[in-house]
């Protein structure tokens, strides 16, 4: 589903790369936390998957597409199979809850009949059907993030990327958002979530990828936030684990092909709906 092999992202003018030879695999249906100090490269990793940025070196496959070589005109189709939420919600202030969610369907050419069905359904899922006609500034932060989540998943994405979605919320509200994410994950959507929220990561016991200075220093199944490693930069440990992972991606691309038919079907669905 997602495969990084030796991906390096070097920003122009930056002294050192934001990501340095990162290799990792994420399977369909996974729920992955990205943790690490500020500036460790979490957002960069997510932006690469969204193809907001392009890797400087290495290979990056997402949903069966090589994001390094994909032509720009194919990017919109890829993004329709993904959802994104951010710390700052990014809602349109002059549109109601309903209109905010509907907007994301309108602009990819969905019919009004489809929108009239899909939007209330997703608002029910996030528990906001009562507040469909409210404007964002009439909602609490947690509610606004639910709207953003509704917008991200209304097109039934295969992959949901979340960049510190609970960063602005209190613990109780955060827990609500996270249980919503779990529900979305149970429906089959792969989730990659960058976070600093210790409580959430420890409680969920999911896969945790820890970045430090653009390098993966930990990749554990069912782990917590706190690193088992000493805080000193133990680069050798990451290079210990990498050789095994480094070989994998090429083979791991093969099962990726197996996922293809499914995504093709969903894209032809969209093509029909667009007309």
């Amino acid at each position: 589903m997602i495969s990084f092999s030796n991906v390096t992202k070097q920003h122009k003018g930056a002294p050192k790369p934001a990501l340095d030879a990162v290799s990792l695999e994420i399977e369909r249906g996974d729920f992955v936390f990205l943790v690490g100090a500020s500036g460790s490269g979490k957002s960069t990793l997510l932006r690469l998957m969204l193809r907001e940025e392009i890797a400087s070196r290495g290979d990056l496959f997402v949903l069966g597409q090589n994001l390094v070589t994909i032509p720009s005109r194919k990017v919109p189709a890829l993004r329709r199979k993904m959802g994104v939420v951010f710390q700052d919600f990014r809602l349109l202030p002059n549109k109601t809850v309903f209109q905010n969610v509907a907007f994301s369907l309108e602009v990819i050419g969905k019919s009004s009949a489809y929108i009239a069905d899909a939007v209330p359904e997703v608002l029910r899922l996030v528990g906001l059907e009562e507040k469909a006609d409210r404007l964002p500034n009439e909602l609490s932060g947690g509610e606004q993030q639910r709207v953003a989540l509704a917008r991200a998943i209304v097109n039934k994405p295969d992959l949901l990327l979340a960049d510190e979605p609970t960063g602005n919320l209190d613990p109780a509200t955060s827990a609500g958002i996270v249980s919503l994410l779990e529900k979305i994950n149970q429906n089959g959507t792969t989730i990659v979530m960058a976070t600093h929220d210790v409580g959430i990561v420890d409680r969920l016991k999911r896969r945790v990828i820890e970045l430090r200075g653009g390098v993966i220093v930990r990749d554990d199944k069912k782990s917590g936030y706190e690193t088992a490693l000493p805080i000193t930069d133990q680069v050798p440990i990451s290079s210990d684990t990498e050789p095994e992972q480094g070989n994998e991606p090429e083979q791991a691309n093969e099962p990726e092909q197996g996922n293809e038919p499914e995504s093709r079907i969903s894209s032809t669905d969209q093509a029909e709906e667009q007309e």
Binding site: V75, P76, L78, R79, R90, F103, S104, R151
Partner: peptide, 14 residues
Amino acid sequence: RREIGIMRLVGASN
């Protein structure tokens, strides 16, 4: 720019 940003993220065509 807000609208454009969202349109790009949700995969609206150029």
